[in-house]
């Protein structure tokens, strides 16, 4: 939270500091939009905080200050980030940007006149993947797919699983593994200048904002990982790279968008992967009891080996 506060314009900072420690803990997003009231998302609900009895309207100056601090007064250093539309800051938090978009030949070149900032506060949920361990580990980690709709906590789950794999677990006599993360959207490790900001263990190497298929091949060739971790696969090249990695004797842990395992058979680029049975475990997530609810864990034939108890 300190890292976020340092970034905020003075006016907004003062308001946030007025919140109690508890409220600060529950903040998920701080939304700053020019000429519109400051909005804070707390446990899924929008809050428009008051200052002296009225909503705080964000001024142009506030936005300029925010951008200055975000870029360390050096906008030219943010070129790549302005193209992608977000900046990852220290602590793995992420600031989304919106405004006037400049294009060349129909491709986004940069965002100029930034009018909206969305500060998404990253909170690593340590231990969220612990219940999975006994199903995914049997003498070695199994190739695993984490499946779930958006906002079901796939990436959070993947991150914690990565941490457990990277740190090992003395109690269960699981040794730590060398892990290669191909982090195309900088979400798993939340890197700043290539250094992971989340706790992932000491044996993790990250290819930050690298295209997945190419990144997997690079990892195989140069970094000799035991396990490769990739977020949101789905394209044909990804599947090819996965087959390549598995043939090289590397274990894979990936996430895919989808609700249930049957969905995967309908996606041409992925169905072959599933049919060939290289993935031994499929973890289905849902958001029915909040993000990160484990709905089912299945083996490669689709047989459930654990079902969430119905209460």
């Amino acid at each position: 939270m300190e890292e976020v506060l340092r970034l905020l314009p003075e006016g907004v900072k003062r308001i946030i500091q007025n919140f109690s420690q508890n409220d600060k803990e529950s903040m998920e997003e701080i939304r700053i939009r020019i000429n519109r009231p400051l909005e804070i998302m707390m446990t899924g609900k929008p809050v428009f905080p008051l200052l002296n009895g009225s909503e705080y309207y964000v001024s142009k100056d506030d936005a300029a200050q925010m951008l200055n601090k975000l870029s360390q007064y050096s906008l030219y250093a943010l070129e790549e980030e302005l193209k992608k539309g977000f900046v990852t800051i220290q602590g793995g938090h992420r600031v989304g940007l919106a405004g006037k978009v400049i294009t060349t030949n129909g491709h986004v070149k940069a965002i100029r006149d930034i009018a909206s900032f969305n500060v998404r506060i990253a909170r690593q949920k340590l231990g969220i993947a612990t219940p999975l361990v006994s199903y995914l580990y049997a003498g070695g980690w199994m190739n695993t797919i984490i499946l779930g709709p958006p906002q079901s906590g796939k990436t959070t789950m993947l991150r914690d699983l990565t941490r457990i794999m990277g740190e090992g677990d003395e109690m269960r006599r699981i040794q730590s593994s060398k892990i290669g993360i191909v982090d195309e959207r900088s979400e798993i490790a939340g890197c700043v200048k290539g250094i992971p900001q989340h706790r992932l263990g000491h044996r993790v190497d990250v290819l930050d904002s690298c295209p997945k298929a190419e990144g997997m091949m690079m990892m195989i060739r140069s970094m000799s990982p035991d396990i490769i971790v990739v977020d949101e696969i789905g394209r044909r090249e990804d599947s090819e790279a996965i087959i390549e990695a598995i043939n090289a004797g590397i274990q894979l842990v990936v996430t895919i968008h989808g609700h249930v395992m049957e969905d995967l058979y309908r996606r041409p680029s992925i169905q072959e992967l599933i049919r060939s049975g290289v993935f031994e475990r499929i973890v289905e997530l849902s958001r029915s009891d909040g993000p990160g609810t484990i709905k089912a864990i299945k083996d490669k034939t689709g047989r459930e080996i654990r079902r969430k108890k119905v209460m």
Partner: peptide, 12 residues
């Protein structure tokens, strides 16, 4: 520093 190093101003 700016063009080739993309170094932020204060560091540069």
């Amino acid at each position: 520093e700016i063009v080739y190093g993309i170094t932020p101003l204060s560091m540069a």
